[in-house]
Write a protein that binds this DNA or RNA. Structure first.
Lengths: 364, 364
DNA sequence: TTGTAAGCGTTATCAG
DNA sequence: CTGATAACGCTTACAA
């Protein structure tokens, strides 16, 4: 058994449980028990077995175990489109956090998809229906569904992150997009701003709806009309943040009445927008205040340093894993919960009171 | 068999090959053959089987297949420390590229490690020795090794990326760090610079050695003494690029004779360094030219836009996968190759000829 | 407490 | 070309 017979050219398969059993002088099932439930076996035999296992450098075969118990210990993470943005570290931070939490609980992390074409979707479904994945965490996207098979019917626990899908029955971990943007906008209003430019991600997208909603709520609370904010963007994805910011700069240039403050829905947008504005001779925050969303580390080193809303990605990752493992354990028939982890406004030099007389602008 | 008997509370296990066989009216082994080697089965029965499989929504169980054939189709990627940097998108780009190439070849990507503690290393070794991983791509780090087991002896094809480990027997995909930095430095010399600050990653690290070597070669070629360059940094990791840049700014302030040009070994370093310099009243590139390494997208939107060396990460990822799959197929006894993918210097406004009299500075 | 034996869902060998 | 049947390495009743 195993590769004792040192056959040349043979793939070494490593020591088997049978090898450990033989070396320890016990039955193979005893080894299995000793390794899994150390309590249910005689202390002395357990020691013998441990010693034998260590001596041989035995590692249990994960696929054999998985097949037998009908479960894997791999979690897949389903990512939207591209993994990289301009400067945002949200996705890598999420991966880091989730992977860490999973490792601590004995699970592996598999990257399931980056390109949302049919091939990738099929790939995801194979992972789910083929027993490879034990659960899934899905980021900012809808459930894959290809010719009859849908991830929703895979009998797989799924947690949505960033995007609230609790209505669709998925436990979700999100941040308080709406409230955070409302507060940021309120801060701008407090400083004296009355006209705003809002730079949007994909229009109608959950984040866009929530964040823009937050702006409107703040305006409303301050007694300002909805017309106080002008929208830009809406047709490109968050991955193209730099592009969006550039287009917004063009939009800004075309405006007859200039806003005095800008609310960008991602740091990338804010960064390229600000760059263009400064090239055009505007000073920030003198002529224009800017706040954005994501809390990318680089914001601290922009000139001026960018005020941004920091998403607590690490906590969100932990929460998502906790929810998922819970669902796995309880093989849950419970109603989908929604966990909200609060974002935090980081105030920096990119916002200030509007200069001169705002009346000049508003012509009031 | 399977979940025909709709038992409540039972985990639905999905249709099995046996179910497909029954529906198609053939033997189970014929189904297996039809699905794997469509050529070795009668066209008509194949059609029947395909239809049955599709009708049932059959997905083969990956673990069963893996156990039987003694191979998985999962590749693990071993990452150094943290997954996220300041603004660099190198890691996410690598993941994207590798995952895409693997998917196209029917492989899955598993993230193997982010924290290089003993637990994680053990985890990696379990993946390797437990048959979960069929191969590994390792980024800028050495092979894990814990109590007796070493990844090197797992009988697993491994490809190193970013770091040249061809000497240690690992096929490696790297960029031409040395040459790229040499050219960048030469460009600065051509512009008239004669005194340099070099901002380093971990001292003695492969990248540091290569990149600093490139600087020295350029100096030498121009007949400049080694003393023309001052080193800063060396004790922090690349993940702490912003920190390194800040410390470098302090180092710069303490210098009696100021360099006129800075070579940062990562964009993060350059960004925080530049931010500090500008806060201190220096203008870039007027008082100081800056080039850096990585080619982060955000560099285009810094003020001034940063000259940087762009690593062809996508190509490198593809090359790494190609090498790995090759090694898997050939179960290769061939000598470890080294694939070099050339970096590219992106010229932007952060470098210029030194102003008038460098003596002004040096006099102080 | 330990051993025996029956699978888990595939693939591969070997007859037919 | 197709069908039995024996593994793959492990877990888990069940028996001793």
């Amino acid at each position: 058994m195993s590769n004792n017979k040192d056959v040349l050219g043979e793939e070494p398969s490593g020591p088997l449980m049978a090898d450990v059993a033989r070396l320890a002088g016990v039955a193979i099932s005893t080894v299995s028990r000793a390794l899994a439930n150390p309590g249910r076996v005689n202390e002395k035999t357990r020691a013998k077995i441990d010693a034998a296992a260590k001596q041989l450098g035995y590692t249990p075969n994960a696929m054999a175990r998985g097949l037998r118990v009908g479960k894997s210990n791999t979690i897949m993470i389903i990512l939207p489109g591209s993994l990289y943005y301009g400067a945002s570290q949200v996705i890598p931070q999420v991966l880091q956090s989730i992977n860490k939490s999973l490792s601590q609980n004995g699970y592996n992390l598999m990257i399931a998809n980056l390109d949302r074409d049919e091939i990738s979707e099929r790939h995801i479904l194979d992972l789910a229906f083929g027993g490879t994945a034990r659960g899934a965490i899905i980021l900012s996207s809808k459930l894959p569904e290809v010719d009859g098979r849908s991830l929703a019917n895979a009998g797989l626990p799924i947690v949505s992150m960033l995007l609230d899908m609790s209505d669709a029955g998925l436990p979700s971990v999100v941040t308080n997009d709406r409230e955070a943007v409302r507060e940021a906008t309120a801060e701008l209003i407090r400083l004296g701003h009355r006209r705003f430019l809002y730079i949007a991600g994909p229009e109608g997208n959950y984040h866009d709806v929530e964040r823009y909603g937050g702006v409107l709520e703040a305006l409303d609370a301050a007694g300002l009309p909805e017309e106080a904010v002008v929208r830009s963007g809406g047709n490109l994805d968050y991955q193209q943040g730099f592009e969006i910011g550039i287009q917004a700069a063009d939009d800004f240039a075309a405006l007859a009445v200039k806003p005095t403050a800008v609310i960008a829905t991602s740091d990338d947008m804010a960064i390229s927008f600000m760059s263009r504005m400064q090239q055009g001779g505007l000073t920030i925050p003198g002529d224009l205040s800017i706040v954005s969303f994501d809390g990318s580390p680089v914001c601290a080193f922009c000139s001026p340093p960018l005020t941004t809303i920091e998403q607590p990605v690490e906590h969100m990752g932990q929460a998502a894993v906790a929810l998922l493992l819970d669902a796995i354990d309880r093989s849950g028939k419970e109603p989908a919960t929604r966990t909200v982890v609060r974002s935090r406004l980081i105030l920096r030099e990119s916002i200030a009171a509007p200069t001169a007389s705002p009346r000049k602008h508003t012509a009031r």
